[in-house]
Design a protein around this nucleic acid. Structure first.
Length: 554
RNA sequence: GGGCCUGUAGCGCAGUCUGGAUAGCGCACUAGCCUUCUAAAUUUGAGGAGAGCUAGGGGUCGCGGGUUCAAAUCCCGUCAGGCCCGCCA
């Protein structure tokens, strides 16, 4: 509807002497379609003119005539309501979609490059559903910016030298555990350490040997990390989530990056050694007394996570030409502002950040250490099982379909929520197949596909025939898609797309119910078929952007 | 103690950035419809299934104040939940 809005803005500018940007923000979509498609509130203008707003609206309305884009203008109270030429919108929208197909809605950027790091789960056990939130959001963002034309590389950061790995090395005791056994080992060793803190000393001994380059210890760490990374990746791949680069934290420990970085930081004059012999960056200028200290090394000079991550982030900044994005949990908010401030001292532009809040359980927080988690693999199995059950009821034998539907439901239940909201995990809600869920959306696509398979479309359209409220609302929503993509990409919020795709599916189902296609004939049938086809492109695109497949039959 | 995020119907959410005309949606609940083209069932009727449609009930937009012609939306305060605050990652 952009062309229509621009047109109205121009007309208003001519007649009010207000500048375009201001008109554009004032111009709104009325709450009720009976009030038109666009509405201009005259309160501000009335204030400037020192006149009654209702009179201003009524005077202004005289200047607007019917034209190619506008069918009529009405005033209602202090509002000037514009009704657009629906036949024109139908034609512009449907033709555009049929021309661009699955590219419709893209921002069509050229020659841009983006880097995104997401998931980056600690390699200590199987991921739980809380961690999956990072992967789903990250993957959806990757799909979104790729769709918009960016050449995109996806990174996964592996904290392969942490305390947790040392604990697992100790727990494994020279054996090579299977991936699914790691979580129990991890819980067990945590319990042991809690009972007997002496064991923790051994953990630090291992870490120390590792940092000094002890080959045997290095290999033990590698073995555990490898099992973990492979296991995690298998699960994520099964969900259709892929990475281009796996970046190992150890690389930044063993190469000279951290050392060089410290030298660079000396030049900022903000680096000091505290009275416990740690190297600390003073960020009080931007972050205040409470949170202004960013500790980079231990007393013995070995690096802390912050320093290694700073080195890694700079490496990414140098690779990312246009957009550099990272997805992190809400627990890292303060940490990230420190990182950002440190980068600023060095004149680097910090990555764009997407924070998400934690998934909680009814009984409280999830903790891998304590073992009170819902594992992602468990969630996936349940989702597939439920979908299988539904398919059996319908005597559908398609093997892949259970995953498409089950995993779709699971991803959708995570992605539909705004990332900053805490979510309390609930099996029934997470696995719902009705209402606001991905099977509902997929179903609408399947219905539309089925129509298209049964009849052939002639390209004899007559767009003014799409004139009942179901058709009109469907076209309008389709025409909003590029705007939704734009916003989602600006704010890095896949939930906008999730919410949109549900609205669209709902509008289609209303249309489906009220507007027969196959039963009709001639131009009406053809034009409706074109609308159905346009719908399938858009709904498929939006599902794909969430990492959800759209099946033609279900 | 300090900082950031969240609070909208019994439950789960959208709307808050960019203030605007009766606060939307889903689940659950009540009453209908089913006609297409997904699936299943039936094919006279009746009934069943459904991830389908329509309508209905249900709201102090956490609470208090302020700004404004106009506040769920902006500002201040307050309460509740989540996250963080120097050798974890």
């Amino acid at each position: 509807m952009d062309a229509f809005k621009q047109h109205i803005v121009k007309l208003l500018k001519k007649n009010t002497q207000i500048n375009e940007d201001e008109i554009s923000t004032l111009l709104e979509v009325p709450p009720n379609p009976n009030f038109g498609d666009y509405s201009f509130p005259c309160f501000l203008l009335a204030q400037n003119l020192k006149q009654n707003p209702v009179e201003v609206a009524s005077n202004l309305s005289k200047y607007f005539l019917k034209d190619e884009f506008i069918s009529r203008v009405e005033c209602k109270g202090a509002y000037l309501n514009f009704f657009i030429n629906q036949a024109k919108l139908n034609e512009v929208t449907v033709k555009e979609i049929l021309k661009l197909k699955e590219r419709y809605g893209s921002m069509h950027l050229k020659g841009k490059r983006a880097l995104i790091e997401h998931t980056s789960i600690n390699p200590n056990a199987e991921p739980h559903v809380g961690r999956a939130r990072n992967a789903f959001i990250g993957d959806a963002i990757v799909r979104l910016i790729r769709f918009n034309g960016y050449k995109t590389e996806v990174h996964y950061y592996i904290n392969d030298i942490g305390k947790q790995i040392a604990m697992l090395v100790l727990a494994a005791n020279g054996k090579k555990p299977k991936f699914h056994e790691l979580i129990d080992l991890y819980i067990e060793i945590n319990k042991k350490i809690e009972k007997n803190p002496e064991i923790e000393k051994k953990v630090f001994e291992l870490l120390n040997k590792l940092e000094k380059g002890n080959k045997k210890v290095k290999k033990q760490f590698n073995d555990i990390v490898k099992i973990c990374v492979e296991g995690q990746n298998e699960i994520l791949n099964d969900l259709g989530i892929k990475y281009d680069f796996f970046d190992y934290e150890s690389k930044y420990l063993f190469n000279k990056d951290c050392e060089n970085l410290l030298k660079e930081l000396v030049n900022t004059k903000k680096l000091f050694t505290d009275n416990e012999q740690r190297q600390v960056l003073d960020l009080r200028e931007s972050l205040g007394e409470e949170q202004g200290f960013f500790v980079l090394t231990r007393a013995d000079g070995t690096s802390l996570y912050g320093l290694r991550d700073l080195a890694y982030t700079i490496y990414k900044i140098k690779k990312a030409k246009d957009r550099n994005i990272v997805v992190l949990g809400e627990d890292q908010k303060l940490y990230f502002t420190q990182l950002r401030a440190a980068l600023k001292l060095l004149n680097y532009r910090a990555p764009e950040i997407v924070h998400y809040s934690f998934v909680l359980l009814q009984e409280g927080k999830m903790s891998t250490r304590k073992g009170n988690v819902v594992l992602l693999s468990e969630f996936m199995n349940e989702a597939e099982k439920k979908a299988r059950g539904e398919l059996d009821k319908r005597k559908n034998q398609d093997k892949r379909l259970a995953k498409i539907i089950g995993y779709g439901a699971l991803k959708y239940s995570v992605l539909k929520n705004s990332p900053e909201k805490n979510v309390i995990f609930d099996w029934d809600q997470a696995l719902t197949f009705d209402g606001e869920s991905s099977p509902y959306i997929q179903y609408s696509y399947a219905r539309a596909s089925s129509i298209l398979k049964k009849v052939k479309m002639d390209k004899k359209f007559k767009f003014d025939l799409l004139n009942n409220k179901y058709e009109i609302e469907l076209v309008k929503l389709l025409s909003n898609f590029p705007g939704v993509i734009n916003k989602a990409s600006r704010d890095l919020k896949p939930n906008y797309i999730a919410n949109y795709s549900y609205d669209l599916a709902q509008k289609f189902n209303e249309f489906y119910h009220n507007c027969p296609v196959i039963k009709e004939s001639g131009e009406l049938r053809n034009t409706r078929l074109a609308l159905v086809l346009a719908f399938t492109y858009v709904i498929q695109t939006s599902l794909n952007l969430l990492g959800i497949e759209a099946p033609e039959k279900m």
